[in-house]
Design a protein around this nucleic acid. Structure first.
Lengths: 248, 248
DNA sequence: ATGACGATTATGTATATACATATCGGGACG
DNA sequence: CGTCCCGATATGTATATACATAATCGTCAT
């Protein structure tokens, strides 16, 4: 699938009109200019603005609706959706809930925070086609006094308005993002590793001890949003996921 | 999690025509009736078959293309795509396919096989309410000459009749079961462990080396079918799973 | 053979039009 | 005052049509 997205307006690129409309609106939503609940212009208004037929506008809006960014209601119009709080991934990765389910007090502590222009490695991790501003975060999730998980996160600042101003001192970026950015797709990579020096140090375990590493990339309407890596000490964690076959 | 957006409402008769076309074709592809590489009918042929305009057919095919199920080429037609390797890894977990995707020859070798009346531990692993016959299997999956994964499996014989007569000498029980028992639900537990003596021995790695352990329980119409534990050496494997939020 | 080139073909995008459908609001009526 | 119904309105789906674009095929000339 194509991550070809064009937020740049310059240079007569040969993207189709309905894609440009879609991309314009997505930009408004992801930048925060149109908040959740905001009513998007009616089809006939966009028709006038872009000087095209309703079918063309409709195509763009239908795709945004399918991507989950907007919600369409007959007779009322189209609205920016509330970000979905999600069961599927939540089940996997709301660490606070997992910790509290163990009956232990939860705490998040920021280790590092750096705003920078994306390096080549950043772009490859996020799946970004072009350079842009990103936010790098590192933090620790605690269960009681013990480190429960190490988090290393990269946020695509051009997709998440407002993240640049957030300090994330004691607020974990995961819940913060879920409350603000609707996600349309997520990819998980799960593997086991031996703890290296820095991981062992952060998690207070022995170097070489087995750890579970969960990496997640998240997209919103084909826009990369964030890449996060969780490192769990082996004893502390089991992931559970339930599936029902997709009736295809 | 889905390969294609499953926004179909099924039971209702009020599905739009382009959705019915889309769903018909998806059915043919996912059922295997149209193998990868197969050329699906031209738009003008589908136009005739469904007695509708080309735009309607085009809408269905465009969505299938965006979902990644088919690939469209001007002048040539539309073709069923090669299965996207990672989409259903967690769901199916067919090790042969994973190994062959690496370009390595695959082989399965049985280590142990025992038919017995379920012990208390067996019942707890399978989620069985009452004692009954079970089959215990242990085997090794090879990628080339190297062990790729250790498999320990419990099959509920009262749910899977023919399994008792199968030797599983070089046939892995996973694919065998999938071909015979439709599953309606699966639960995965994923964690990292340090290899103990017997695991290290079977996988030919050092004791204490990190391993990824994936356990799966499967049900068919509320009947426990099988419990399986895969143990992967850390370097050999990354699980990949893609999710799309279910929009309620 | 081989390479150039135009005709053919299937898809890609956009248009104008039409009617269906859900729903909000307001007016008629009990 | 509440309820039912009806018209207005935005979206949902489908049609016929048009032209653009990319790729393939056959033909013809070198």
């Amino acid at each position: 699938m194509s991550l070809v997205e064009t937020d740049d307006v310059e240079s007569g690129e040969s993207i189709s009109l309905h894609q440009r409309i879609l991309s314009d609106i997505r930009e408004k939503i992801l930048s925060g200019a149109w908040a959740p609940g905001h009513r998007i212009p009616f089809e006939h208004e966009l028709t006038a603005e872009y000087k095209c037929s309703r079918m063309t506008v409709n195509k763009a809006l239908s795709q945004l609706a399918k991507a989950g960014l907007i919600e369409r209601r007959r007779r009322s119009g189209s609205f920016v959706r509330q970000p979905q709080s999600q069961a599927a991934v939540l089940e996997l990765h709301d660490i606070r809930i997992e910790v509290e389910a163990l009956g232990l007090p939860y705490r998040y502590e920021r280790l590092k925070r750096m705003k920078r222009r994306s390096s080549a490695e950043d772009r490859s991790r996020l799946g970004l086609p072009a350079p842009g501003p990103v936010l790098w975060l590192e933090g620790l999730h605690f269960a009681g006094e013990r480190p429960f998980a190490l988090e290393q996160r990269l946020i695509n600042l051009s997709a998440v308005a407002g993240a640049a101003e957030e300090e994330f001192f004691e607020i974990a970026p995961g819940p913060w993002l879920i409350g603000r950015v609707p996600w349309s797709e997520a990819e998980h990579r799960i593997r086991a590793v031996a703890a290296d020096e820095s991981i062992a140090d952060a998690l207070d375990i022995d170097p070489g001890a087995p750890c579970l590493v969960v990496e997640r990339r998240t997209w919103s309407a084909e826009h990369p949003v964030t890449h996060v890596r969780f490192v769990y000490p082996a004893e502390s964690h089991t992931l559970v996921a339930r599936f029902t076959p997709s009736q295809g």
